[in-house]
Nucleic acid binder design. Structure first.
Length: 481
RNA sequence: GGCGCCAUAGCCAAGUGGUAAGGCAGAGGUCUGCAAAACCUCCACCGUCGGUCCGACUCCGACUGGCGCCUCCA
């Protein structure tokens, strides 16, 4: 039984072997903080959150680093447009990032380094790269000399000739001081009015890629176990990081490269440049955050996932079902306490490990969640005082909560989540809760009076609004279909 | 143009060289004043064409159809 992870570098699923037994050092590229996060970010950070949770649950001691890029062309432009200082802008969006992630159940990393707070490390690494003959200064800029690294493009699997052929058609040489068109900036000389830091090459700021090389090595060492991010970062970002780190240390700095697939909208890539993106906060205003999280886990992390309202709505119905099940089980156990059957819990754990060990297969893991919750309801339906019932409920509930803890699902207070989902559905359907509750109360009164004709009329009326009624021994509950 | 990914039931989505998880929808049941919820049962031979193999949906090749990267991007 061993964990297998798809490594972008080798393009194969391989046994995950850590540098140091039992310890994982992982780095995931964070966001550039100039705007609100979209659901593509949600996908990436939920995916790595599950990977992190699973590794820890499986017993690894994990150090997780996820950075913030807080100096960059887009940030500067946005800052100028808005007339807001850069630091104020970046602080705002870092706070927004944390809010969005917290809503999605994505925790903080152990270290969340900001580029602007690591200038000495960055400058030092650039200098080392120059000293070792892999970078050169040209009028205040510093470039990486790709011809000095034989392994360049090995991560992304491209060929230099092809890259040039493709690029030359639309990219005109704006940086004539570069020795090779593909050379990339390690350090950019400051233009007037731009944020700048002093350096041996004059005032300037870091190129995009160097920050991750510098900060990852600071917190995780020159070589570490896992480096992740979205597929779009493979080239050029990660390719260049790899080149820089190699140039600075002579070592292959990442053991396993992990990349998540995109979120598509209408089967096309969602991106800022296409303008078809959805901000996380806009989505979770309409759908419960856990619904979005569930939705993101229904597809394997490396495959593209297509975002649609109906798909998230379906996920929401599943989340609702799970919490209703949990609530019923908790209510039952409150009346009839029982201990879970440990061997069965352990057997479920093994099935889960088998599933998740296969490159973090959350989609398959959700099938285990479905099986468990179905069984839990099945046991809950058992009549009378079947001796095994309480144990069965306790066992299935434990299993469900165990799986949920790793996936980041099923961990909230059921009543709170269910109310939240109901409110989302009311909002989406433009329904008024007060009106519904009045009608429901009227119908309850009619039922008590055995006026079933009137009760059915009211049921029909509510049904037309999308309200589903559930008459039970403890009264009538309702929810939105 | 270069590189790469994907193609599984009405929809979404796992997966294995030896006759295909799960979810939604649908059909039939149990339950219910009627319902709903819940549970039970049923519901696919895996894009096309070749090849390898005792045997392929799973391996190889071709084709067709989607998509992505090569430019900031999770």
């Amino acid at each position: 039984m061993s964990l297998k992870v798809f490594n972008t570098f080798t393009r194969t699923k391989e046994p995950f072997e850590t540098l140091e037994p039992g310890k994982v050092r992982m780095y995931v590229c964070g966001v550039t903080v100039y705007d609100r996060c979209h659901i593509g970010h949600a996908r990436a950070y939920v995916a790595f959150d599950v990977i992190l949770r699973y590794l820890r649950w499986r017993g690894y001691d994990v150090t997780y680093v996820r950075n913030f890029t807080d100096v960059d062309d887009k940030i500067i432009r946005r800052s100028n447009e808005a007339g807001v200082p850069v630091t104020e802008l970046t602080d705002t969006f870092i706070a927004a990032f944390h809010e969005d992630m917290a809503a999605l159940g994505v925790g903080r990393a152990d270290v969340e380094p900001r580029v602007t707070e690591h200038m000495p490390e960055i400058i030092s690494m650039v200098q080392t790269i120059i000293d070792r003959g892999h970078g050169y200064e040209a009028s205040g800029d510093v470039y990486f000399d790709i011809s000095s690294f034989p392994g360049y493009l090995k991560l992304s699997g491209r060929k230099l000739d092809d890259m040039q052929a493709g690029a030359s058609e639309r990219v005109d040489p704006q940086e004539p001081q570069k020795r090779h068109p593909m050379d990339f900036a390690l350090w950019k000389a400051a233009k007037p009015g731009e944020p700048a830091w002093d350096s041996p090459w004059g005032p300037g700021r870091p190129g995009w890629h160097i920050e991750c090389s510098a900060m990852s090595s600071k917190y995780l060492g020159e070589v570490f176990d896992m480096h992740g991010g979205g597929m779009d970062l493979i080239f050029p970002h990660h390719e260049n990081e790899r080149a820089q780190s190699w140039a600075a240390t002579g070592k292959e700095f990442v053991r396993t490269w992990v990349h998540n697939g995109f979120v598509n909208v209408d089967s096309e890539k969602m991106s800022k440049s296409l303008g078809n993106f959805f901000a996380i906060r806009d989505v979770i205003a309409r759908f419960h955050p856990e619904s979005l999280r569930y939705f993101l886990l229904t597809t394997h992390y490396r495959s593209p996932i297509n975002f649609t309202d109906s798909a998230v709505g379906e996920a929401e119905n599943r989340v609702e079902y799970l919490y209703e099940t949990i609530q019923t089980a908790c209510d039952y156990l409150a009346r009839t306490p029982a201990q879970a059957d440990e061997p069965e819990v352990e057997a479920a754990r093994e099935r889960f490990v088998l599933t998740m060990d296969d490159d973090f297969n959350t989609a398959a893991a959700l099938a285990l969640v479905a099986d468990t919750s179905r069984r839990l309801n099945d046991v809950l339906m058992m009549k009378g005082k079947a001796p095994d019932k309480a144990v069965g409920v306790a066992t299935a509930l434990r299993i469900l909560q165990n799986l949920g803890a790793v996936l980041g699902l099923c961990g909230q207070e059921p009543a709170v989540i269910l109310a939240g989902i109901r409110d989302c559905k009311l909002l989406r359907n433009g329904l008024d809760r007060g009106l519904i509750e009045t009608l429901v109360a009227d119908r309850v009164a009619a039922r008590v009076a055995k006026d079933f004709v009137r009760a059915d009329v009211l049921r029909g009326e509510l049904s037309g609004m999308g309200v589903v009624l559930m008459d039970g021994p403890e009264g009538t509950r309702w929810k939105i279909a």
